[in-house]
Design a protein around this nucleic acid. Structure first.
Lengths: 216, 216
DNA sequence: GGGAATATTCCC
DNA sequence: GGGAATATTCCC
């Protein structure tokens, strides 16, 4: 007899049973609670995003200080002064409005009104906490050279082309290592999924055996 | 499921308001009082160094928590627990001993005793606040090679060592690219396997359905 | 609005 | 100890 304990244990993602049911219904679907294909990359949302979202969900009287706009498609800081003094230190290690805005810019939020402090990001909307993982920092991509290597012009006239090459190489090197790590993580994810799939298959087979046995 | 570390920030550090305000004011000092033209590079000391120095100069009862050693050539954290809870938040935006140590390492301090938390830096001594500007971060500057590339012998890299470095870099680079390819192939295999598994599962389910139908 | 330095956290 | 990601500050 095969082991049920694996999938029935509650240690894994909630809804293993669900995924089994879904399997019975839709075959081509990769709905195992974790996705197989390339839906938008769901990472662990940045702490900044989670905090900012949570801060908006606080339904207390602070809604006069900061809140979603009417449509829930952006948020408004109604009172920057109070927001800085009261709200920010509850969630962050500072009370500077400008630092908060710096972070918003880092994550690609846009100020969408000249009359009030209203900020918008496509993936940051009321009720969509699950989309926060799709928001990423605006950092320069691994494949991009750092600014100090671009357009070095005359300043580095002293540095030889050899040194330049070396810097480029080091940069590429660093990026490759980062890529390696990411690929490794992808592989780990894949492997975990395989294990789940196999467990699922095994469980399904057992269930079917039992059904047949009962009918015979 | 993954864990998000909202931890410390949501639990407000009690009574921090004052210190935060002080911090913000204190930071303003940085742009002033920079010595120019002294023989050893006198820069504006890093906030971290100034705070750590000042924290030691506080002659209050906190000397039981942290103080200079007898010779004034290093300093000792006598009580890490109290230091973390009481001293750190007065000067920094956290109360983690390990973050403090991370900073010490960044600035090149060395732990010089295995029996107590004693840290030393050549330029960080009692009565020598004016030398703090000579202490720099260990970060790899744009013009500096990473440690693993430094020949550790001379600053004036001869063309031969440069060539050597370059060769090493290119080699590592090549290997990394090879690795990348292999990892990519592993991923492709994984994905193919997933597809097969799903197909297999789906086919199996169909067969079972038919069996059941026939029996009913 | 964003580049870059420093600080804090996380992880090996 | 230190690499690297994220946070905070400073400055243009």
């Amino acid at each position: 007899m095969k082991q049920f304990s694996l999938s029935s244990s509650s240690t894994t993602s909630k809804g293993d049973d669900d995924s089994v049911l879904k399997l019975n219904l839709g075959l081509g679907n990769n709905s195992f609670g974790c996705h197989v294909g390339q839906s938008p990359r769901q990472r662990c949302p940045a702490p900044f995003l989670l905090k900012t979202y949570d801060l908006l969900e606080q339904g207390d009287d602070s809604t006069k200080i900061v809140s979603w706009n009417a449509e829930g498609t952006a948020f408004v800081v109604w009172s920057p002064a109070e927001f800085s003094e009261l709200t920010l230190p509850k969630y962050f290690k500072h009370n500077n409005f400008s630092s908060f805005i710096r972070q918003l810019n880092t994550y690609g939020f846009k100020k969408i009104s000249s009359k009030r402090w209203e900020f918008k990001h496509e993936k940051f909307q009321r009720g969509c906490r699950h989309k926060l993982g799709e928001i990423t920092r605006k950092k320069c991509e691994p494949s991009v050279f750092p600014s100090y290597l671009k357009s070095s012009s005359e300043e580095n006239a002293t540095s030889s082309t050899e040194e330049n090459n070396q810097q480029l190489l080091m940069e590429e090197n660093k990026n490759l290592k980062k890529e390696r790590l990411e690929l490794q993580m992808q592989i780990d994810e894949c492997k975990a999924l395989e294990i789940k799939l196999l467990a699922c298959l095994s469980q399904y087979m057992d269930t079917q055996q039992n059904k047949l046995r009962r009918l015979c």
